[in-house]
Amino acid sequence: MTAAAALAKNRYVPAALGLGSFVAFIALVELLIRVGVINRFIVPMPSDIIAAFPRVIVEEHVLQRFLLTAGEALSASILVTIFGVAGGVLLYRYHLLRLATETWVAAVAAAPLVLMYPLYLVIFGRSALTIVMMGFTAGLAPIMLKTLEGLLATRRVLINVGRSFNLTPSQQFWKILFPAALPTIFVGLRLGLIFALINIVGVEFLINFGGLGQLINELAERYDLAGTYAAICFVILVSICVFILMERLERWLRPVD
């Protein structure tokens, strides 16, 4: 076994290497800004961003904003998971519906849906609901498409095993099709949730309603670059929380790949 392979087997080495690389990258950026290679009026020094955290947390009420954005992201995630997976199942189940709409759904997945926010403002008002619905709309199509792909990719022999055991259509779905499609469904969920989160923060930014998106907008307008980047770190934190939840859910539903 090579030394690299032995290190990869160690429980702590990969995590330490990842963290070490990140710290080294931050230190490099700091150095490049200090020596003037990177313009400090465009990219703030990492040390300034770290120093801005207490100010952003205390003065900008970042906890309430974080909870608002996280709540919107969670609501959109739940909605998009339920309706996206159900939509994918419908497309799988009804061949005519699939033929009639699959191209449209794929087109929606690629469309810049954030531009529809004025319409949503008219329908849902200037509220968190508009933001959640924008996130939901943006995340729906990729989840539907990936659910469909996962179900269609279920190996014929597994379906035949179910048939040979006289499974009911419901058992066939829950015991074979759904678990077989789960890895692909979760790829769709990850994609969909990224789309949803981008749109949630984007619409918060655009409609100045609240949450981390609005904070980023305000800090940017005040030209508080360190504060802006510190606020962006909290958006990344929301993303990390959602993805950890997603990973736990996947491990629970399918303990092995």
């Binding site: 190996r155 022999v157 006289n166």
Partner: peptide, 19 residues
């Protein structure tokens, strides 16, 4: 007239449930 409980089938392809 369809899959019968008295018949058990073993398939040519790998057919275990990976999950």
């Amino acid at each position: 007239r369809g899959p019968h409980p008295a018949i058990g089938m073993i398939f040519q392809e790998e057919s275990t449930f990976p999950w």
